[in-house]
Write a protein that binds this DNA or RNA. Structure first.
Lengths: 239, 239
DNA sequence: CCCACCTTAATTGTATTATAAATAGTATTG
DNA sequence: CAATACTATTTATAATACAATTAAGGTGGG
């Protein structure tokens, strides 16, 4: 897609969105008034107001006469919005946030594999296969490890042929990126990881929903278990 | 929350959003130009542009000079946005859409029950219990059946203490409403349904994640199986 | 004839100014 | 002291002007 900073309003949305997600403006806080935002960003009220409206549409703020612009309760935030997810990524994700991501991945990805085994078209199978080729190349350093991995997970989601699962592409991608940040070894894909993906692919291709579900579940549970362990250690230390 | 039509821009967002989701404006179609929208709604360009920006923020449209305002590919739509979900509901949901909702519920709700069994606070337990009381009252016609049911599912989601699951409240609520529309019997909650909910509650309260997961899974699978069957029948008829 | 370049016109992007509406806080008045 | 009225602040809306972008068509050189 096009860059998100095509115009002034989008730039301001990006700046303010980042600041809200990183906690510069906290829930309940007031943002600067329209007039102040105009001077801060050196733009007209038109652009400022459009930015405010966009953040309102994403559920981050509300603006009312005399009351000003305020950050609303986080339960109203559109956490699955691609911009919001990117702002989360720009913040300082901690282990608890990573766990929250992994908990939802545990729910989503096995079922996505199951649906893919039931509803995948030929083109979907080809896309998964192509991602696997990239991963294999990545084991030899001929392709980007992380990108290939993200590609694989996305292609499975899309193969579910369910628009809601497909919409979670951005979520999964962000989850993987945060995961990468914590396991920050720039190693190539291990043979075991690659083989696990191949196994899931074969089960999808051969239309084995339950088996594909189970295979994906094992992977997700393993990842989540690691983080749960890390949090346990962390909490034992601080206690 | 406050009504979504507090101001002109919000009203226009609502009107256009509805038309996009119901297919009056299809993917790739051009919407009327800013100037035309101004005359159609009899409002200023300021208000029109703010509405356009809000729909852009929700991922439904894009607007560029000379090119105009266009409905973007549906894979970019923020399907988990509360407004978008309501517009979907206002359209004419079919069995396939219902199945898509149920497929995601199957992924989400059992895991939410599991997380609730692991992470629920006392207040969360109380909220679930309160929803159960409402359901019991509904069996006697003393409360609204559907509202009580929605309450229960929401309270479990919130008990997961995972912001991403909590954000899916709107999704689950919409799914239930669509389900109600198809099973349009205005009957009271059956004893079996109520008992199934009580069982899940007990398992959550007694911190049995796996058992809570399994219990919720049974319920979801049963519902999905019914719809799969209906679709099977439908496709047999049209073939 | 064809391709590269230029011009034009349509549409959104931005700025400015003015006024209206909503409302929190303060003052007034009975 | 309480109810009311006033005031000032902030967002909401409108109107106008001009800039920037770009699709489409026209123009000229080869």
């Amino acid at each position: 897609m096009e860059p998100s900073h095509r115009n002034l309003a989008h730039q301001v949305v990006h700046e303010l969105g980042k600041k809200i997600m990183e906690g510069t403006y906290k829930v309940g806080d007031s943002l600067p008034s329209e007039a102040d935002l105009c001077t801060q960003f050196n733009i007209s009220r038109t652009a400022t107001r459009e930015a405010v409206k966009m953040l309102t549409a994403k559920g981050l703020i509300s603006s009312r006469p005399r009351q000003g612009i305020k950050v609303v309760d986080s339960k109203y935030w559109n956490l699955f919005d691609v911009d919001v997810l990117n702002w989360i990524l720009l913040g300082k994700p901690d282990l608890y946030l990573l766990r929250h991501f992994l908990q939802l991945r545990l729910a989503i990805e096995p079922e996505a594999a199951s649906l893919a085994a039931q509803f995948a078209q030929e083109s979907d199978i080809e896309n998964i296969e192509h991602a696997l080729v990239r991963m294999k190349n990545a084991t030899n350093g001929q392709d980007d490890t992380h990108e290939a991995d993200i590609d694989f997970h996305k292609s499975v989601l899309c193969a579910s042929n369910n628009p809601f699962f497909i919409q979670l592409n951005n979520f999964i991608e962000t989850a993987l990126k945060i995961n990468i940040r914590f396991t920050n070894r720039l190693v190539a894909v291990t043979v075991e990881e690659y083989q696990a993906h191949v196994d899931i692919f074969e089960l999808i291709k051969n239309k084995k929903p339950q088996e594909a579900f189970d295979a994906a579940l094992v992977t997700q549970k393993a990842t989540l278990a690691i983080v749960n362990k890390q949090i346990e250690v962390l909490e034992a230390e601080t206690a």
